[in-house]
C-alpha cells in the first residue's frame, strides 16, 4: 500500500541556541490513501507545524514531504501554489471565509482561481449534504460558527482535491456541532475517495479516525 502523503526525516526548528524549539524533529510519517488519519497532540507539540509542512504552506529546514511520491519542496513557490490548489483542500479552525462573498461564491472561489469550470451538479450535491441549500446567497457574517465551518468544508471538497488537511476544524464549535461536522467530513471524504488528515487535541475526534498519530515534542510517539 503506497502512502499518498509521506514525510522523510522532516526537520523544522524555531529559535536559536538554548531557546530552540524543535517543532518537527526528524519525523517520518506515512498517510495511506483514502484513510482518515488524526494527528493528536498537546498544544505546542508541533502538530500544526507538521500540517503546514504537509500542505506545503511552510518550508522545512531539511527533509522531504512527498505527495504521491513527488517532493513538493522541489517545486518553485509559484508551482507549489498551483500544486497545492489542485491537490489539497484546507480547513482551518477559523473557517477563513471571504466575508464579502456569499456562500456559493466562497465555495466555488478556489475553482475560479484555477481557471476551471465549476461542476455545478457536484457542488450542489455537496451543498445539499452540508444542509446549506437554502443559504447559498447568505453572507458568512450571517451564519453561525457551525454553518461557516460547513461552508469551509464544502469549499475544500468542491475542487475535488486528493487530500484534505484540517487544522483543529472544530476548535471553535460546541460539542454537538463538532460531532456533526466531523461526521460530515468523514462521510464526505469517504464517498469522494479523498484522504483526510486532521489535527486535533480532542480524543473524541480521534476515536472516529481510521488511524491516530500521536505527536509529542515534534516526534511521532505512537501510531
Amino acid at each position: 500500500m503506497k502512502p499518498i502523503l509521506e514525510t522523510k526525516d522532516l526537520v523544522k526548528y524555531y529559535g536559536q541556541g538554548e531557546n530552540v524549539v524543535r517543532a518537527i524533529d526528524h519525523t517520518d510519517i506515512q498517510i495511506p490513501v483514502g484513510e482518515f488519519t488524526a494527528i493528536v497532540g498537546r498544544s505546542g507539540s508541533g502538530k500544526s507545524t507538521l500540517l503546514h509542512m504537509l500542505g506545503g504552506l511552510d518550508r522545512p529546514d531539511s527533509g522531504k514531504v512527498l505527495i504521491g511520491g513527488k517532493d513538493i519542496f522541489d517545486l518553485k513557490d509559484e508551482q507549489l501554489a498551483i500544486f497545492r490548489r489542485r491537490k489539497i483542500g484546507f480547513i482551518f479552525q477559523s473557517y477563513n471565509l471571504i466575508s464579502s462573498l456569499n456562500v456559493w461564491e466562497n465555495i466555488v472561489f478556489p475553482i475560479g482561481l484555477d481557471g476551471k469550470k465549476v461542476d455545478h451538479d457536484f457542488v450542489m450535491d455537496i451543498i445539499q449534504r452540508i444542509g446549506m441549500e437554502d443559504k447559498i446567497h447568505a453572507l458568512p457574517s450571517t451564519l453561525s460558527g457551525g454553518q461557516q465551518q460547513r461552508v469551509a468544508i464544502a469549499r475544500a471538497l468542491a475542487a475535488r482535491p486528493a487530500i484534505i488537511l484540517a487544522d483543529e476544524p472544530t476548535g471553535n464549535l460546541d460539542s454537538r456541532t463538532e460531532i456533526e461536522v466531523i461526521s460530515l467530513l468523514k462521510s464526505c471524504v469517504g464517498d469522494y475517495g479523498q484522504t483526510l488528515v486532521m489535527i486535533t487535541h480532542d480524543e473524541t475526534i480521534a476515536q472516529m479516525a481510521d488511524r491516530v498519530l500521536v505527536i509529542e515534542d515534534g516526534k511521532v510517539v505512537n501510531s
Binding site: I130, G131, Q147, R176, I179, E180, L184, E203, Q207
Partner: peptide
C-alpha cells in the same frame, strides 16, 4: 442536527479511562 440525528446514551457507571476510549 443539520445533517444528522444525534443519539446519546448517558450512564452513571464506572466510566472509561480516556486512554482506553480509543
Amino acid at each position: 442536527l443539520t445533517s444528522y440525528m444525534l443519539i446519546e446514551v448517558v450512564d452513571q457507571g464506572i466510566g472509561i479511562r480516556p486512554e482506553e476510549a480509543n
